[in-house]
Deep mutational scan, measured.
Amino acid sequence: GLPEGWEMRFTVDGIPYFVDHNRRTTTYIDPRTG
C-alpha cells in the first residue's frame, strides 16, 4: 500500500494522482517510486 497519510485518487480523465494528507499536497509521482 501507500505510505501513511497518502491516498490515491483519479482525475476526471482517469489519471491516478496521489494526495499527501501530511503536507496537504498532491502529486502525479507515486511516492513509492519517487
Rank of each mutant, 00 (worst) to 15 (best):
Y17V: 10
N22Q: 14
V19H: 06
V12N: 12
T11Q: 07
P3F: 04
G5V: 04
R23S: 15
G1M: 14
R9S: 07
L2S: 02
G1Y: 10
R9Y: 09
P16Q: 09
E7M: 06
P3R: 05
E4H: 12
I29V: 11
P31C: 11
V19K: 05
R9M: 09
V19P: 01
D30W: 01
R9P: 00
T25I: 15
G34Q: 14
D30R: 00
D30T: 00
G34K: 09
E4S: 12
R24W: 13
E4G: 10
T27V: 06
R9N: 06
D30K: 00
R32W: 07
D30F: 01
G5N: 09
G14E: 05
G34M: 13
V12M: 12
H21P: 03
E7N: 02
P16N: 02
D13S: 12
I29F: 10
F18W: 15
E7W: 02
T26N: 07
G5D: 05
V12G: 10
P31F: 03
I29N: 10
F10K: 06
D20W: 04
I15S: 05
Y28V: 08
V19T: 07
T11E: 04
N22T: 11
R23L: 13
G1Q: 14
Y28H: 11
Y17G: 00
W6V: 07
M8T: 04
T27F: 05
R23G: 14
Y28F: 15
N22R: 05
P31S: 02
D20S: 05
D20I: 01
R32K: 04
E4I: 11
G1V: 15
V19I: 14
M8D: 00
V12Q: 10
R24Q: 15
R9Q: 07
F10H: 11
G34P: 14
Y17H: 02
P31G: 02
T33G: 12
R23N: 15
D13R: 10
R24P: 07
R32L: 05
R9A: 08
T33P: 13
F18H: 01
T27N: 03
T25A: 10
T26P: 04
F18D: 00
M8G: 01
W6N: 01
D13V: 09
E4P: 15
T33Y: 12
F18R: 00
T26Q: 14
T25F: 15
F10P: 01
F10L: 09
Y17K: 02
M8Y: 03
T26M: 14
I29M: 11
Y17N: 01
Y28N: 07
R23I: 09
D20T: 04
W6R: 00
G34H: 14
P16V: 10
W6P: 01
H21Q: 09
D13E: 14
T33W: 13
W6D: 00
